[in-house]
Simulated scan of single mutants.
Amino acid sequence: MATKVEGRERLLAKMRALPVEVRSAIKQALAQGADEITDMQKRLAPVSATGSHGNPPGALRDSIVQTWGGDKARYSSLAGSAGAGDPDLTVRISAGNSKVRYAHLVEFGTSPHPNGGKFKGTDHPGTTAQPFFYPAYRALRKRVKSRISRATNKAAKKVAGK
């Protein structure tokens, strides 16, 4: 016994359109969230008045970047990513580059230790942690996840309502 489904073609068209609409909405929400996190990280990053390690003031702040596609930024010291493994829906935020290789030392601090090299025999007193990277992520992750969920649901309802 064969059954006929009314509106089958229309339903199939909606199902094919769903991924495109939803992916677009997710990418837009993810981009907005990544911008918010990056902006907060840059505001929280300490800026030395004289610069450090031969870099100008603000080099650490300026090294915080977003990389789309899930590729790791080269020479980054700290990184966090969001996305489901899909290159189009994956963004990685990182701090550090070829000139700024100390982001992790600023974020977590260092313990006292003996120096080597040119200053061998002297003791380094250590540095206190100045967290800027992960506090911003932790402060905004719930908001970003909610925004992505809302965008996904809204896009799915929009496609289903056509």
Rank of each mutant, 00 (worst) to 15 (best):
F119S: 11
S81G: 11
W68N: 11
A2C: 00
S77G: 15
H53K: 09
I148S: 04
P57K: 11
R43T: 06
R61K: 15
S146R: 03
G7R: 10
I148W: 03
E9D: 12
A156V: 04
S81L: 02
R23W: 03
V100K: 00
K14L: 07
F119M: 13
P135T: 04
M1Q: 00
S111E: 12
G51S: 14
N115S: 09
Q41S: 06
P114Y: 09
R141G: 02
A129N: 12
E36P: 01
A129H: 11
A49E: 13
L44G: 06
G109Y: 09
V91D: 02
G33N: 01
L140T: 08
V144M: 02
L105H: 05
P125Y: 04
N97H: 06
D86H: 14
A136T: 04
K27L: 15
S149N: 05
K99A: 15
K145Q: 12
K4D: 07
Y102T: 01
L78F: 01
M1K: 00
S48M: 03
G83M: 05
V5K: 09
I93D: 00
K157F: 08
K42V: 05
P114S: 12
R23A: 08
G83I: 01
H113K: 11
A45E: 04
A95I: 14
L30S: 12
T90Q: 09
G33L: 02
G70Y: 02
K157E: 12
K157D: 13
G117D: 12
H113S: 09
A155P: 06
R147H: 02
R43Q: 12
G54L: 13
D62L: 06
K142V: 10
A103K: 01
G117S: 13
R92H: 03
K154Q: 14
